[in-house]
Structure formats: C-alpha cells, structure tokens
Amino acid sequence: MSDLNLDAAQLDRYSRHVIMDDVGPEGQATLLDSAVLVVGAGGLGSPVIQYLAAAGVGRLGIADADSVERSNLQRQVIHGDDDVGRGKVDSAADFVTALNPDVTVDRHPVRVDPDNAADLVADYDAVVDASDNFPTRFLLNDTCVLADTPLSHGAIYRFEGQATTVTGGQPCYRCLFPQAPPEGAVPDCATAGVLGVLPGVVGAIQATETVKLLLGEGETLSGRLLVYDAGDMTTEEVPVAANPDCPVCGTDPIDSVADVSYTDSCAVPE
C-alpha cells in the first residue's frame, strides 16, 4: 500500500484530483506510487508523457533510441526547437522534470527489441505503446500479455487513429490483427504524412486509459478498438473478440517471444 500522506505542495498541485471521489487522496497516492513505461517519445508519446507527468505518475520510463528532428516538431509537442539533435529521451526527461519534480524519469535510450523487452516491461505497472512501427507494436503486445502487464495501444495514419487497451485475460492486439501487413502496404508517418494534432488526440486517449488502469476506475478500451477519424470528426467502436487460437493470449500460448521473428509479418510460427 502506498503512503497516503501527500505533502502540502502535493495537496495543492493535485487538488483537482484529490477533491474527486473517483481519485481522492488515495488515488493520487496510487498514481505517485505507480510506474509506467512509455515506448516512443514522439507524436503519441508526447501527450502521454505530458499528461502522465502532470498527473503525478511517480516513475516514468521513456524508451526511444531516436534524436529530435525539426520535422518532428509539428506534432511532438514536448520537444522544442533547441532540442533538435538531442536524444528524445533526454529532451523528454527535461520536459518532465520542468513540469513536475514529483516524477522520476528512467531514461531508456534504446530500441525495444526481443532481447530487452521482457526486462524493461517487468519494471513497470503499465506500458504505453506510442511506437511508430509494427515490429515494436507486436513485440510489446506479446511481451505485455505474457507478463500480464496492461498495455495501452495507439496508432495513427494521416487523419485516422486507432486505440485499444490490452489487459489480463482479455483479447489482445493479435486477436484483432494476427500479423503485420507486408512492408510498405500501410505507410508510416514519414512516408504518408500525418495531421499534427492527430497524435495529440490519440495520445491523450492513451494517457486517459493508463490513468484509469492505474486507478482501477472507469471502463477501459479492453475488448474494443476505438477508431477516430479527424477528417469527419467521427469515432467508431469495433469489438475485439478473443481468438481462442491466438498464439499469445489463447488457450495454447507461447512461453516467450524468443521464437517469434519481429520482422516482416511478425507472425508467430505454428
């Protein structure tokens, strides 16, 4: 159980949480005692990091191997013009420190890969997939399901976003998409472009899901895929049914990600 004693500055900083029945001092103490891994400090990761830090999530792991580029700044709002060329993890950590001294940042300036994923995930209460590629997305799904660590998934394409939440015993991302499209079939942001504010919306949804997961409040997107179209300003909800044959969360799951090749289709070998 966490220490429920918020100090005076914390009672002030988090007062709008503390007065809510659904959060209260206990919920705020829970957030301060929580640790979340955010994979990707880019378009989606920026609002995720921003809101989780503001909410007082006590420890934020930030994993990203990239450096800030000027073309990122149209949407990656935690990085500034002076950060161009710096590691995204360092830039993000400075942002968090300036925003909220209650938050400790674990810097992981690495690409999450099959060799380090399980160790990284093991150190956190929840994981946010704010990555920008299918191999990382499938790897995080598989690793989190095997570790029984809740995962918030978000992804964007031009004007459209997708978000879902994977929690223990519930359908996973692979139930919905068993494998990745052929390379190039679904282009990334660098190729296709993306509306700058789109990841702001989708990342804020992921931050919302993560706070709810930590607090145990509300209904998450577990078992549902939210599809957001910024062009029409519409949302659709797609049910995600558990696939009993899912190689990761089904009745006969894999033991580890060791035999899965996270390239091309990212398919799990039969």
């Binding site: 880019g42 990761g45 920008d132 590629n133 964007i156 394409y157 919905l176 942001c189």
Partner: peptide, 25 residues
C-alpha cells in the same frame, strides 16, 4: 467468429467494414 463467415446473409441495412492496422506514432 460469430455468424456464417462468407455465407452470412447481409441485407440493405447492413453496414460492412474493412480496415487495416496502422502503425504511425
């Protein structure tokens, strides 16, 4: 998973959808 696959009967009011995963971040 839930009905008759390709043999599922659809009528004039049915909404059908096709979508791919996206990966941008």
């Amino acid at each position: 998973a839930e009905t008759d696959g390709w043999d599922t009967v659809v009528d004039e009011d049915t909404e059908l959808a096709l979508f791919p995963p996206v990966s941008g971040g």
